[in-house]
Design a protein around this nucleic acid. Structure first.
Lengths: 146, 146
DNA sequence: CTATAAATGCAATTTATTTGCATTTATAGA
DNA sequence: TCTATAAATGCAAATAAATTGCATTTATAG
């Protein structure tokens, strides 16, 4: 645990942000099983009274600004957040998702089919390239329920 | 124009929805350049007074429910919508995006590197499979501005 | 043409997000 | 270790976003 905590501290410092208990908690929460969480989900998962709703909003906004987090929409009107893992570096936990359109369950997919930046993409002159690949479908459980 | 309008009518009917002028307008709007639009963007792009805000909300929700639309988060807290194109059928306008993290400009990418459903994905038993692949980066313009 | 279920607009409500400000906390430098 | 200061936090209040109820209109099956 302490070893990963160290990681968050380095990450926050690198982003020019102060290291606070709340921020560490939020990052630990998101790192756990690479969860996708909404603001509401983050707030309620923190131990009761740990952080004000406003503070969660502000932390998330800041994290997203500096690129620690990315956001996803799963089609229920909520924005969810997850830790951003560098897609084109070897030692990251970069992964994809398989998401059930009905129940929103998320399965992690470790295999990445896009190992390198495609040449046609390089030509466009964008920097700090990254990608996100998600599969959507209806999970076996929801198929049976239908 | 009439020829594409026909397409929306078929699409709405297939989804069990009534065909109304507002719905056609919204679909035409989203089809134009395969735009990504927020609720606010959709409402303001419709000719003034064409539709109430509430109606836009209700249409979008319905469209998403029946799978006509999908939603995307670009990291500014807004949810944007686009027409859903079947990824694994030949005659769709399926495409990917290259999105600037700073200014949110969206470039369409016609090439799809994921031509078929990967075998390991098939094994998981999900139906109605689909995928979404987006690249993120900083566009040349924003690089110069930085 | 008519009946009916769905869609729409408007007003009002509820929920989500942001802002202002006083207080606390992290951290760079003495 | 202590201190100054800039950032982070909590609370109250304000603003904005999304939903609901209901009366009215509209699309469509028969």
């Amino acid at each position: 645990m302490a070893i990963t905590k160290e990681k968050w501290i380095i990450m926050l410092r690198a982003a020019g942000l102060k290291v606070t208990p709340i921020r560490i908690h939020i990052l630990e929460l998101l790192a756990k099983d690479h969860q996708l969480l909404s603001i509401e989900g983050i707030h309620s998962s923190l131990k009761k009274g740990t952080a004000d709703f406003v503070t969660v909003y502000r932390c998330i906004r800041k994290f997203e600004e500096v690129g620690i987090l990315t956001s996803v929409a799963l089609g229920d009107g909520l924005i969810r957040y997850e830790l951003r893992e560098d897609t084109h570096s070897k030692d990251s936990h970069h992964h994809h998702h398989l998401i059930c359109r009905i129940c929103k369950v998320v399965e992690l997919i470790q295999e990445c089919t896009i190992k390198q930046i495609p040449p046609w993409l390089k030509k466009l002159g964008y920097s700090e390239l990254d990608h996100r690949l998600d599969f959507f479908g209806v999970c076996p459980k929801c198929q049976r329920a239908a």
